[in-house]
Design a protein around this nucleic acid. Structure first.
Length: 797
DNA sequence: GGAGGCCTCGGAAGG
DNA sequence: CGAGGCCTCC
């Protein structure tokens, strides 16, 4: 044990050894964060803590899997008993056992985003509301952020500000949709992703015995990527940790790149307030990158106002300066990158796998791919459609879901007429109406289709009856058959397999193969005892539903039935990386998916204004700062060499458009970067003569940058053009052309302008972002309490 | 119920 | 430009 602690530097070791009480570890990029986390857990186990009592929460399944493997190497096989998984998988597991307290069945379905949107569409149709006004994705966002801030539909309905706000933006029925959505999920025995967190919190809040049970169970709690947690996640963790206070969070505010979907950096600040006796450790030594790269990345992030004080440094060599390459077009950018990779491989004996090309948007991969193909450089693209979100897979899984939970309305709608069996939309609509009128679920109507009055034609009724008996036969089989036998039986009986087999187009062939692949996976689950679980969670007998009775046989010998399989994979949404055996390839991915990875040489491409930073980020300062953190993440992926490229013109949606170099290029301190003017007009490309003027000359760029740094002020946004699209719902809200300021900038005493109430003065502030409320005095209206998140306030003075 | 024409819109992404 | 949704027509 002493031995392995020697693998750590001083601050890492301190962070590992401080096992008791609240701990916050601020870990800079490349500072060995994962190492500290794994060693800390291994250290706890070696000190004799039962792994069943350790809860480690991550954001991705991949992170959980990798960490568990690494801990096994340090602490042995016992590691498989750790409660290590994503927030969602851990709490889904708990809700399977305890959900009945809230009225949910243990076999509840989990709605993915598509299911949620589809349910919202159904509700809109039933309520005669316009999908254009109530865009399902926007409605879902709204419901989601309410639940993530622990707000039920009742509280939403009774919140004057919110209702007012919805009315002003022409969407007065949002709270009604929220209500119907909630009730509909409950009736279907289903939870969406946000419900898994929301209901867990409510379980702990409203049932003291449950809270007590889990406080005693999870004596040690660790949270990875803490900067990415949202409010409800933080509140759950806080509740469970309230007894032992052995809570350790690890994060880096500089790498928070998911605020746009609800992550809340403010949690880091709240943490310091909530735990006054907190031990804070900062990991500031970077082991990954050269001095030039570390310093350059630091100089960029300095332009952000919202950040914790921390100084990342490194002992490594200075290395080469960061190179900026200018291209004339996206295609030339591709060949420049491909050529550089070729050269670097030659000059430094590197392999394809040592290189990564990172971009802001997926659409940029095309020109890179073409160039790499021309040079015969093998590559792999990460990201894209996940295996489990393919249509054919979701169709088959919907049959499984329906078998397990026949009330699952979204699964039912998906497959009641697939493959086609003559039960059209009109019949389904009639079924929904009948279900509503009789206060029953759709499934209950289906079961009694011949006796309930629905207005459905008799021969359609017969088809429905056939469908019902088919599903019922699956349900009977589930008790006695293993997952694989039943799954392949379902694939055959329903006609899915036949339907796909008959499609001989290349895509159709792919669909058929995907089904086969899914079935193979189920076979593996059924037959193998050491199947790599999707959930990463232990088989923990202490969570048995009946507390007093022991199960008839050990948990490990339970027959592997279909419902167990579905529990295991329900939350697997990450894209499967098909392993074709050859891993020596150049990696292509978005910057977001590169988080946590490292490469010897990295190319960040498309450094153009309005692309990176994205033009969508120009709305508010918060968005721009997040974009800058994204740039920081991209830069710090590189170990030895970093190259930035931009094109002066680029095809966008079929049109050739002119581009300016990104402001981010000007924000890198001049000492760590060099502008290599290598761009030449190539013969094969002829159509951008107009972009060759001196506007983009390197010398001008260099002078501008020098000037900026001499004046010791960050680069000022140039050509700051607000978007013409007027609708965006985020922490800084824009609606009806009224552009709000960043709520976090608002302080007491400020004069602000409200869309409706006019100009007023902030007289009181309370609560934490994003729930901070301001009391504002408006001369015409008197005092108004506003939720800054939703109130559209412009700072006047 | 499926094929084909027309319209709209375009961001990164985990569970 | 191209994917996806919707409408129309058979």
């Amino acid at each position: 044990m002493e031995d392995y602690l020697n693998h750590l530097n001083e601050s890492q070791r301190l962070a590992v050894e401080c096992t008791e009480g609240p701990v916050m570890i601020i870990a800079g990029a490349g500072s060995g964060k994962t190492r500290v986390l794994t060693y800390r857990i291994a250290h706890l186990m070696n000190k004799g803590i039962d792994p069943f009592n350790i809860l480690a929460l991550t954001f991705t399944n991949k992170a959980a899997r990798e960490m568990k493997n690494r801990i096994s190497l340090l602490a042995g096989d016992e590691a498989r008993n750790l409660w290590m998984g994503t927030f969602h998988s851990v709490f889904a597991r708990i809700l399977r056992v305890e959900g009945h307290r809230l009225g949910f069945p243990s076999n509840f379905s989990i709605y993915d985003t598509d299911d949620s949107k589809s349910l919202i569409k159904t509700i809109l149709r039933e309520q005669n509301l316009d999908e254009k006004v109530y865009k399902p994705s926007m409605v879902l966002n709204r419901i989601s952020s309410a639940k993530n801030n622990l707000m039920s539909w009742v509280e939403y309905r009774d919140n004057v500000e919110l209702i007012n706000d919805d009315r002003l933006s022409g969407k007065p029925h949002l709270s009604a949709i929220f209500e119907l959505y909630t009730k509909r999920c409950f009736k279907a025995g289903a939870m969406d992703f946000d419900d898994l967190l929301y209901h867990t919190y409510m379980l702990l809040k409203n049932f003291p015995d449950e809270l007590n049970k889990y406080q005693h169970k999870f004596k040690y709690i660790l949270v990875d990527e803490f900067q990415d947690t949202n409010y409800v996640q933080y509140m759950i963790v806080r509740k469970i940790a309230a007894m032992s206070e052995n809570i350790c969070v690890v994060g880096d505010d500089a790498q928070s790149i998911y605020a746009f979907r609800g992550a809340n950096i403010q949690n880091i600040l709240s943490f310091e307030k909530d735990y006054p006796d907190l031990s804070v450790f900062k990991l500031e030594q970077n082991y990954r990158s050269t001095k030039n790269i570390v310093n350059a990345a630091n100089s960029v992030i300095l332009n952000n106002r919202n950040q914790l004080r921390k100084e990342v440094w490194t002992d490594n060599d200075h290395g080469a300066k960061i190179k900026v390459l200018r291209a004339l077009s996206d295609n030339e950018e591709g060949s420049i990158v491909a050529n550089s990779i070729f050269q670097e491989k030659m000059n430094h004996q590197l392999h394809n796998k040592d290189f990564a090309i990172l971009y802001r948007t997926n659409a940029q991969s095309r020109s890179m791919e073409e160039a790499l193909r021309r040079m015969n450089i093998p590559y792999r693209i990460y990201g894209g459609l996940s295996f489990y979100s393919r249509k054919e897979i979701k169709d088959l899984l919907a049959y499984f879901r329906l078998t397990i939970n026949p009330n699952d309305e979204e699964a039912l709608k998906r497959v009641i007429n697939y493959p086609a069996r003559g039960i059209g939309q009109t019949s389904v609509d009639k079924l929904v109406v009948a279900a509503d009128q009789n206060g029953k679920s759709i499934w209950e109507i289906l079961e009694n289709i011949h006796t309930v009055t629905t207005g459905i034609a008799t021969n359609t009724q017969d088809k429905i009856a056939d469908f019902v008996s088919m599903i019922k036969s699956f349900q009977v089989m589930m008790k006695s058959h293993n997952a694989y036998d039943l799954a392949s039986y379902i694939a055959n009986t329903t006609g899915i397999l036949r339907d796909l087999y008959n499609d001989k187009t290349p895509e159709g062939l792919g669909h058929y193969e995907n089904i086969q692949e899914l079935l193979n996976g189920i076979k593996e689950f059924t037959t193998s005892s050491n199947y790599e679980s999707g959930t990463n969670l232990p088989e923990d007998e202490s969570l048995s539903q009946s507390n007093n009775e022991l199960p008839d046989y050990p948990v490990t010998q339970l027959p592997k039935t279909l419902d167990l399989y579905m529990q295991d994979i329900a939350l697997l949404t990450d894209a499967e990386n098909k392993d074709d055996g050859d891993n020596n390839k150049v990696s292509l991915m978005t910057i977001h998916s590169a988080k946590g990875l490292e490469f010897k040489e990295v190319f960040v491409v498309g450094l153009e204004e309005n692309l990176f930073p994205s033009q969508m980020s120009m709305l508010s300062r918060a968005d721009l700062e997040e974009e800058r953190r994204l740039f920081y993440v991209a830069m710090t992926r590189a170990e030895k060499m970093l190259t930035l490229t931009y094109a002066v013109s680029r095809y966008r949606w079929g049109n050739l458009v002119g581009c300016e170099p990104s402001r981010f290029l000007e924000e890198v301190h001049p000492d760590f970067i060099e502008f290599a003017n290598i761009s030449k007009r190539s013969e094969s490309e002829t159509s951008w003569g107009s972009f060759q003027d001196d506007d983009f000359s390197q010398s001008r760029l260099n002078n501008q940058r020098k000037k900026n740094f001499e004046q010791k002020k960050p680069a000022v946004p140039k050509n700051f053009t607000p978007l013409h699209r007027s609708q965006k719902l985020s922490s800084a809200t824009v609606a009806n052309d009224f552009i709000a300021d960043d709520p976090s900038q608002i302080v007491v005493g400020m004069e602000v302008e409200h869309q409706k109430f006019g100009t007023g003065k902030v007289i009181h502030l309370e609560g934490n972002f994003p729930d901070n409320k301001a009391t504002v005095y408006f001369p015409a209206e008197g005092n108004k309490q506003l939720l800054l998140k939703y109130a559209k306030l412009k700072i006047v003075k």
